[in-house]
């Protein structure tokens, strides 16, 4: 790696400070013994973690969020991977149009998407809010699935699939024995990115929520609007810890370079 200039280095340090320091304040306040979100924390205790993990709206919402993120990720990959292959390897008429369609949720304001889905799916088609959320989140994740797996497909040698065909594999067999394994790091990274994107989403989840099914970010947002207790800091800290653990595990298993490089070589 080449040496960076002192200016670039200071900017990088400043950037990290701006991003990380506020988070540290949140983490610190989560350990308070007092009743209010205040820094410095008054005393040290884990009571707010107890509160957070036993507060039923949070635990319900956490399960809902996990369920939604998992299903939406699976659906987005199931639709996105074949779509990527068709766009990049197939002889698709108007492929840039199709690609644009799959990437469009990235550009459209999510509130508009949410509102449109609310009107069409819930009011017109009378789907329940879980179905509407699942469709909304899947659409939201499609660009990530298509882009990230697409990036690894660009790096993959097209002759690999030709070689498999030449050795006697049908197109379907080639897909499962060669294409998917070669794209595995790309698919894992698309899955991680999709899962986190769905899990953190607020705008679409906000518009499509109901009393029975509400995601964790929406529930937390709702909570903060009415209460200002350290329970929210504790919940945030738990989410942060879970994300860090996920990242470390992914790094251990695959390495970030491979996850974000996205190709099995």
């Amino acid at each position: 790696m080449k040496r960076s200039s002192p200016v670039a280095a200071s900017l990088a340090v400043l950037g990290y400070l701006v991003m990380i320091v506020p988070i540290l304040f949140v983490v610190a306040t989560a350990f308070t013994e007092g009743e209010t979100l205040r820094f410095p924390p008054e005393g040290l205790s884990l009571r707010w973690f107890d509160e957070a993990t036993s507060y039923q709206p949070f635990t319900d919402a956490l399960l809902s969020s996990l369920q939604l993120a998992l299903l939406a990720t699976v659906l987005a990959l199931a639709v996105g991977i074949p779509a990527t292959l068709a766009i990049m390897r197939g002889r698709l008429p108007g492929r840039s149009l199709v690609e644009g369609l799959f990437l469009s949720p990235l550009i459209l304001p999510e509130l508009v998407v949410g509102l449109a889905l609310f009107q069409q799916l819930m009011l017109q088609l009378e789907l329940d809010n879980f179905q509407a959320l699942l469709i909304g989140h899947t659409a939201l994740l499609l660009p990530y699935a298509v882009r990230v797996t697409g990036a690894s497909l660009v790096l993959a040698d097209p002759a690999l699939e030709e070689a498999a065909r030449g050795l006697g594999a049908s197109p379907l067999r080639t897909f499962f024995t060669v294409t998917l394994p070669v794209l595995r790091p790309g698919i894992i990274s698309a899955a991680l990115l999709s899962f986190v994107t769905s899990f953190n989403n607020v705008p679409i989840s906000l518009l499509l929520q109901s009393r029975d099914f509400r995601t964790l970010p929406v529930t937390m947002l709702d909570y903060v609007q009415q209460n200002y207790t350290p329970i929210i800091a504790a919940m945030s800290t738990l989410l942060l810890a879970a994300t860090v653990v996920l990242a470390v595990v992914a790094e251990r298993i695959l390495g970030f370079a491979r996850i974000f490089g996205g190709i099995n070589r």
Binding site: D157, L160, E162, A164, L167
Partner: peptide
Amino acid sequence: GMVFQSYALFPH
């Protein structure tokens, strides 16, 4: 049997 310029060996 085809041998490709890039060899196209299955990396996995």
